[in-house]
Computed example of a mutant assay.
Amino acid sequence: MFDHVVFGVSDYAASKAFFLKALEPLGVAIVSEGPLGVEFCCSDSNASLCIRRVEEAATHLHLAFKAVNRGQVENFYKAAIEAGAKDNGAPGLRPQYHSNYYAAFVIGPDGHNIEVVCHEPEV
């Protein structure tokens, strides 16, 4: 549905390093960087995530990324915590959403709630 999402961060270097490490298990990499910020993208998608420098305090967002399997959810969570994120929900089923909703949540450098979710049953 989305082509790209852009939001501001207060500590550009910390946020860039965080998203690069935390989203690496999903195949996300930097595709461009310039004066306006950095663009991350997955090799299997045309949608991108862009962060830019802002002086004012960032508005907190909830960003949810799709995983193809539960292992990616677990690898994201581990990588995000190693990158300095705060736990906001370890990998696990969230049956209140639906029976196969397997997700993990972390709080990133600017207080954004970052989620990775797999909707597929365990194989």
Score class of each variant (00 low, 15 high):
residue 37 G to C: 04
residue 77 Y to G: 00
residue 59 T to Y: 10
residue 109 P to R: 01
residue 49 L to M: 07
residue 114 I to G: 00
residue 38 V to W: 01
residue 122 E to R: 09
residue 6 V to F: 14
residue 114 I to C: 04
residue 3 D to S: 10
residue 57 A to Q: 14
residue 94 R to A: 05
residue 31 V to T: 14
residue 53 R to P: 04
residue 95 P to C: 07
residue 16 K to V: 14
residue 74 E to W: 06
residue 91 P to W: 02
residue 109 P to M: 02
residue 28 V to R: 00
residue 55 E to Q: 12
residue 52 R to I: 03
residue 112 H to C: 02
residue 34 G to E: 07
residue 114 I to S: 03
residue 98 H to K: 08
residue 114 I to A: 02
residue 43 S to R: 14
residue 11 D to L: 05
residue 96 Q to A: 12
residue 24 E to C: 07
residue 57 A to I: 09
residue 72 Q to K: 14
residue 69 N to T: 11
residue 50 C to W: 05
residue 90 A to C: 08
residue 89 G to H: 05
residue 20 L to Y: 09
residue 33 E to Y: 07
residue 2 F to H: 14
residue 104 A to V: 06
residue 88 N to W: 03
residue 103 A to F: 02
residue 25 P to S: 08
residue 3 D to C: 09
residue 13 A to W: 04
residue 87 D to N: 11
residue 77 Y to M: 04
residue 79 A to S: 10
residue 117 V to H: 00
residue 39 E to M: 11
residue 56 E to W: 00
residue 43 S to Q: 13
residue 19 F to Q: 01
residue 27 G to D: 03
residue 24 E to D: 13
residue 72 Q to I: 10
residue 84 G to V: 05
residue 69 N to R: 11
residue 73 V to Y: 05
residue 118 C to D: 01
residue 111 G to C: 03
residue 22 A to Y: 08
residue 112 H to E: 04
residue 14 A to K: 15
residue 94 R to L: 03
residue 106 V to C: 09
residue 26 L to T: 02
residue 106 V to T: 07
residue 11 D to W: 06
residue 71 G to K: 14
residue 7 F to I: 13
residue 73 V to D: 00
residue 71 G to Y: 07
residue 115 E to S: 04
residue 62 H to Y: 10
residue 35 P to L: 13
residue 4 H to F: 15
residue 70 R to W: 12
residue 27 G to C: 04
residue 61 L to V: 12
residue 115 E to G: 01
residue 34 G to A: 06
